[in-house]
Write a protein that binds this DNA or RNA. Sequence first.
RNA 1: AAAGCAGAUCACCUUAUCGCUGUUUCGAUAUAUCGAGAGAGAGGAAAGUCCGGACACCGCAGCACAGUAUAGCGGGUAACACCCGUCCAUCGUGAGAUGAGGACAAGUGCAACAGAAAGAAUGUACAGGUAAGGCUGUAGUGAAAUCAGGUAAACUCUAUACGGUGCAACGUCAUGUAAACCAACUUUUGAGGGUUGUGCGCCUAAUGUUGGAGGGUAGACGGUUUGAUUUUGAUAGUAAUAUCAAAACUAGAUAAAUGAUAAGGAACCAUUUUAAUGGUUACAGAAUCCGGCUUAUGAUCUGCUUUUUUU
Length: 125
Amino acid sequence: MKETFNHKEKLKSKKEIELLFGEGKSIAQYPIRLIYRKSSIQENNGPKTAVSVSKRNFKKAVDRNRIKRLLREGYRKNKYIVHHNTTHQFTFMFLYTGKEMPEYALVASKMKKILQKFNTQEIKT
RNA sequence: AAAGCAGAUCACCUUAUCGCUGUUUCGAUAUAUCGAGAGAGAGGAAAGUCCGGACACCGCAGCACAGUAUAGCGGGUAACACCCGUCCAUCGUGAGAUGAGGACAAGUGCAACAGAAAGAAUGUACAGGUAAGGCUGUAGUGAAAUCAGGUAAACUCUAUACGGUGCAACGUCAUGUAAACCAACUUUUGAGGGUUGUGCGCCUAAUGUUGGAGGGUAGACGGUUUGAUUUUGAUAGUAAUAUCAAAACUAGAUAAAUGAUAAGGAACCAUUUUAAUGGUUACAGAAUCCGGCUUAUGAUCUGCUUUUUUU
């Protein structure tokens, strides 16, 4: 499959995000935390995804931008792990909970682990 | 060579692979998407939000007061607290830097130490003088002792400018209906209510009927990037800048694009075997748009000053 990450796969609706924070489940794999939820909307486009970095841990906009880009890149490269699961529409939110500027290699490996963890949990239930 | 002063320029580069956001061309179709190609995609400060505008809406912003800001002189500008020129003052050996540079001949306030006395009155020594007396001169204290004294980062006065709120402004469309909103008519009252800091002034309310259409859902689109624009040249001017001509189109996101990986090169630093190895490549990320200011920050270049050495 293609390693794209265009606007269809991005989570943009404010309503959906509020629901996600309200009733979503979470998987932690320091320094990344995934919050996910079964969406009410059915589009068959794979999970809708957003990323976020706390302003408290990173004051500079440059740093936050960089981490968000790394998270997006990590997801883009590894999304094949979860993308085949089309029985439900999911919404994802990746949070960066660390306090240090990460390397891409670390983000990529943790992203892989977290997605595999998600797979095993959701396939069981 | 060292130390310093002023100004200008750049903001690591190239290639490949995989991606992101607009634009545009072609082809498909379910008319909104998909596929392919082309081309574009952060800054000098995008930052702080401190000034000044454009633009939009509001009770059409009128007058008075209050309030705020500015302050040699002349010029520039859409405008400014900005910029240019110039005088003066202060600092520096100097290149230069700084400006809290309007008025104390309107009024009020304030003035350490010293001094009899600091704006209110008088007093010591010596000399002169008178009917008498600090009446006059000198000495003495101090930056200043009656001199149109000093002080306005003291009130104040003078001149000039300023209505308020900010693109989450505001407009259109879709969905859709309860109070509230708008228009017309009706009845009652001239009190009450509303109004940007205050007053004058200005606006009008309540009931019922009919018609229109709001709020909310941060829905979609517009506003939104062609502009006090950029580059080059000419002319005017000491300069800031202005005028004219030619060419160019140069980000437009919205939980927010501008990225990741690899290879090679460049600069700097450290180590040492002088050729490699390792590390580093600042400050920092557009959000309606411009002109400034302030702050953060890596280099490179140019001109100038002082000192020392050599000739």
